[in-house]
Structure formats: C-alpha cells, structure tokens
Write a protein that binds this DNA or RNA. Structure first.
Lengths: 352, 352
DNA sequence: TTGTAAGCGTTATCAA
DNA sequence: TTGATAACGCTTACAA
C-alpha cells in the first residue's frame, strides 16, 4: 500500500500543512474543549477541503473501540424463504439511531456453507465490532455461551433455551397466539389448526406451544395432525392448503406463524373454489408482505420493525457505554408486542 | 477499555507464555517459512488453546489492509418492495468465495433517512474496507465519481450513465427484453405492454428502452400508455392488472421487469375471471420468488445470483491484489446472462 | 492554548 | 531460526 498514487493523507500531513502539531489537530477534530476556537475552525476547514478523515484502525488501536456494531445474519437457514428480508427494516431503525451517537451498523452474512459459530468467532476475535446482535437463534445456540464467556456485549434476536444469562429480544409469539385463539374461539371455532415452520428455528416450537396452551385454557385441544409444518414460502402456503383440505376432520380455522404462507394459502383456496373467512377462518401473523393486498383482507398483527430496530440500537448503545465506564448493566429480556388488526379472513361469528 | 475483567490476550501475552519473542509468534501464525516447524506447532497449539486471535486494528494499521470488502445497500429506495432480498443470494456467493482467500464481506445498510453519498464517504474514509461494491446505482450517481477520485477499488452493481471509467456488473436487461419480445412476437402478439418500476432506479428505464428497441426492430411500437410504472410489490402487480384491464386498447401481452409483481397480477386476473396465457400473455423476469408456485406456470428467466456473487467476489479479490502489487488492472463491464424458461403464462401461438 | 511523546497490537526489517 | 526494534495513525497525559 501507500503507493505513490495512493494519496491518502494522515494527521501528520494535515498538521504540517497547517503548521501546528498533530495533537492539536486531533483535539480540534474530536471537539475537545482545550483548543482555540480559531484554530479549530482552521483545522476543520482544512480537513474538509483536503478530504482528511482519521484512519479507523489508528483510532481503534488507541481507543480500544471501533464504533461499529455487528449484526449477524445466517443466509438461507429458512431455505428459500424471504425470511432475511424481515431484517431490512430492523437495520433501518438501528442505523437511524446509531448515526446519532457516532456508531455504525455493519451486517455480517454467514454463508450457507459456513459454520455459524466459527464465522462468529472469526469476526469477534478480530475485534471488528464493539458489540453484536445475533439472529435466528436456535433452541440451543452455542453462540450465546461463546459470546457470554468472551464478555462481548451482545443481544440475541430470538429466544433460546440457553441457561446462560444474556440480553434478548423477541416477538410476542405467546401474545399473538393467545389473541388469535381467543378471537377464533369467541367466534365459535373449536377445530383450529396451526401452521408452523418446517425447520428448527426456535419460534416455530414456541408458537405451536403457545397456541396449544391457549386452546387448552379454553377447554379445547390441538391434535398433532392439526400442526402443519411447511417452509415459510408461498409454495409452503400452497402445500399447507392442500394438507389442510385433505384432513379427514377438516378444521374450521387456521392460524399462521408467517404471512408469506398466506399468499400461497389464498391461492390454493381459490383453486379449490373456497373463500377465506367463509369456508375457513384464517389468521395471519405480521403484516408483511401482504398489508392491504390480499382479498378478503387478512386478519393479522401489526408490528413496526423499524421501531424495534431503533429500540434495539438504543439498548446496544447503552450496553457499550456501560462497558466503557466499567459499569455493570442488567441483562434485558424484551418481548416485542404486536397489535391485532381485524380483517375479513377470520370470518363471521359462527354462533349468530 | 481493558478493564480488569476484559481478558483479551495479545501477542505479548502469548509470547511470554511460550517464552519466545512476539516476532516469532507473529511469523509462526502468519505461515512465514523462516520458523522452526516445532516452534510453529507450539505457537498454533497455544494460540488455539488460549483463544488468541490477532487484533484486526493492529494488523490493519501495520499492513494498510483490513481484509474486508464492503457492500453498500440502500434501504427502502424501492419503497416497501422486497428488492433488497434480492441481494441475499449474492452475499452468499460472495462470502463463499471470500473465505477461501482470507477476505470477509461486510454489508453496510444506508438508512432511508441518510444521504447515500455521505454515508459512503463515512465508511470509506475511515478505511473500514479495502474495496466496496455499491448497488442500486442511479442513472447519475455521484458515488461513482467519488470512489474513482479516491482510488478505492470498487464495483458498481448496476449500470449508470456516468462517464467515469469504472468496473460494473449488471443483469442482461437487453437480452431479456429481446428474447421476451421475440418470443411474444413469434406467437403472433402485436400489442405488447411493459411493466416497469415506479422510481428512478436505472434499470427501469433500461428495460423499457430495450423492449421498445426490440419491438421497433420488428416493425412494432411501444405506445406510452403501454408503459406502466408500479412499485415492485404484490400490490403494485395488482394495480398493474387494474390499469392493464382498463386500457381502451387492451394489450394481448405484458412483460414484467420484476416477478414480485407477477403475484399481484395473477391475483387481479383471478379476481377478474381471466387466465394468464389464455386471456393475456405474461412474461416474468427472474425466477424469484415464484419458481414453481404460480399457476399457470410463469414464463420467466433463470439466473443464479449465488454464482453472480461468486464471480463478483473473484473480480474484487483480483482488484485488491492488483492494487497491493501496484499493478494496473483493466476495468470490467459485465452483463450477466439470464436463461429463458418457458411456462404456460405466455400462452399458445395465436396464429395457429 | 499548544507541543511532545508514549503507547495501542501488529508485522517487517535487520542483526544475531 | 530467532530476538530486538521500528513503524503503521491515532489519542491523550503531561509538560511547556
């Protein structure tokens, strides 16, 4: 590097240009109080004119801090579902908060062929980031123990069954299950099926369990054949519809853990000459990607992933600050609420 | 930092532990030849046992290289479309190649509220990455001039009208347009409409222009009212269908620049009692997210984004190597091919 | 208010 | 084959 044509200038160049010392330049640029306003003005002006910007490696080395927060995403764990698109809005919210406090978000995509733990270790041990968010947590996820042992500030996006104390955030699957079941039971449904994911992502189990609990609480049951596992894709939703209609005891309602499936399910219904809400009640999960597209409109749950990201970034920033000042900070466990929005897909009151 | 409980060990600790000098440790770990095999063995073993891993800031500072390649994505430019999900597979391919040569991919999501150029500058000037890929290039995109001036190795994902020499890669929109039009014209269609994006992303214009050229070449025209701009979403596709059916001169075929729209379009057709392929021919673009889900099957184009990412990473690695050895390397301009796959949606031969 | 110099963790040069 | 040491660019404690 530093070839003749690589004209990146450093703090020495800038100081020499201004005929002052590098210490003053540094203090001026970092907003320290003990610097003549006039000098500061000159420095800032020259820096922007010459395009000087401090080298992050130099800063990091000196300060022990990178100003970066990582977010690890595992490509493809949800097969070909668009599950990862879910995170985009979260990133947006996080970045919006971070830029206010001089942090930046960087996203690490673990390739589908690579071991997630090894990948995480590589990135953490090189000290590329000050803190990290891990997502798509499995029921038992070795990344949690690793990060805790290493004392890296981190947040798990998604619950796990790990016993290691740590901070995590997750969607309110229980709340969604409870309100979905409550709504359907009040409408008179007794045979209610649940569509979950086909892989081992934790929230699939969580959601089914919560639905079952809500049903039992109301004197009903969730037979095993009413738990249908499919990939969280349009095709999965279509296949879900086929299985649903082929059941010997056809349920009168279905609760979905994911809305992408809803598209395929609606499709299957149309092919079969059935109407959601009339022939079977459907309750969706979040509002992506269907919002006001499906007809009849889907009963579903509203969530602002941007706000979630913003909140998450706030917590992370506080964790980093606490670490800086060697303060202990309590772990948090956040259940993010979703709000039910009624559509026509959950149908009329069967009792009236 | 470096609180008492922050027990990250450095090269000095490891050297002391082994009773050898830090120079030897460094050389052993970096696979230099001038080190006793036995010593190397001891060092590697101890490093893995104690969990030592070199601090990236230290390395970067010394070597002038971070071993990181950035990929800048702009959140939300495509409104609420899942356009960004497109990149996931590209990331997967890139990361797969990079890990073979000791590089890593980091993705920078520019928040929807932030200026893309300012965001890019921040990341580049801190020297966080050795090279960068910028995506969602606009027709005139100041990022290109900036990066070129700064002599940062970079690739633009998407063409632009910039006159600055630079490397870029893009999908073969002209090829797709040509084959889609050719196919439809051969089937006897003369009134062919085109669905494009509602915003200023470059490829929208590109695709429309290419379709028009292909039509003109065959003695046909593309009237302005046959160019329909909608958001690249399901809802956009539905709305596209409404506009299409409301046209005074209804076209007999429609070519889509994006497949997410196809879902909404199919939906509208079903609501209107129409059948794709029978009542109007539809040609889709890539195969996401519909693959074999839509019925009748969609005539579309196949592309491996993973392979594209792999190829892109390869080029980037070569660019970095060239820079290292102060070699000049020619810019590339790559048009990535797509392969047509016939479905039923483009319908029968009208002339038979 | 400013300048000087130490030191962050690493790699590379050079002498042993 | 190894050890000592300079240097990478920066921030900060301390001296002026």
């Amino acid at each position: 590097m530093n070839e003749p044509w690589d004209t990146t200038l450093n703090i020495h160049d800038l100081a020499k240009h201004l005929n002052i010392s590098i210490g003053t330049v540094s203090r001026a640029l970092n907003g320290k109080s003990d610097v003549n306003p006039k000098t500061r003005q000159r420095v800032i002006e020259a820096a922007s004119r010459l395009g000087y910007s401090p080298n992050q490696s130099g800063r990091s080395l000196r300060q022990g801090t990178t100003g970066l927060v990582g977010f690890m995403v595992i490509t493809n764990r949800d097969q070909e579902s668009k599950g990862e698109a879910f995170f985009m809005q979260v990133f947006d919210g996080m970045q919006t908060y971070f830029r206010k406090c001089g942090l930046d978000l960087v996203v690490h995509f673990c390739g589908s062929e690579e071991d997630p733990l090894a990948y995480l270790k590589r990135n953490v041990e090189r000290r590329l980031v000050d803190g990290i968010v891990i997502s798509q947590t499995a029921r038992t996820d070795p990344r949690i123990e690793y990060l805790a042992k290493r004392k890296v500030p981190f947040v798990a996006f998604g619950r796990s069954e790990s016993t290691t104390a740590h901070s995590w955030i997750d969607l309110d699957f229980e709340g969604v299950a409870e309100r979905a079941i409550d709504h359907l039971v009040k409408l008179g449904h007794t045979k209610i099926a649940v569509a979950s994911s086909a892989n081992d992502v934790n929230y699939g189990h969580l959601f089914v369990r919560a639905c079952r609990a809500s049903l039992v609480k109301r004197g009903l049951t969730l037979p095993d054949e009413y738990v249908i596992r499919e990939p969280l894709t349009e095709a999965g939703g279509y296949s879900l519809g086929e299985k649903l209609l082929a059941l010997p005891q056809r349920p009168s309602a279905i609760v979905l853990v994911n809305n992408i499936m809803a598209i395929g399910l609606y499709h299957k219904f149309q092919d079969a000459g059935l109407v959601p809400g009339r022939d079977m009640a459907i309750v969706g999960f979040d509002e992506t990607p269907t919002r006001d597209f499906l007809k009849p409109s889907l009963t579903q749950f509203r969530i602002s992933l941007t706000e979630l990201g913003y909140w998450l970034a706030e917590q992370m920033a506080e964790m980093l600050e606490a670490k800086q000042s060697a303060k202990r900070r309590k772990h948090f466990a956040k259940i993010w609420p979703l709000e039910m929005t009624l559509g026509d897909s959950s149908g009329p009151d069967l009792k009236s």
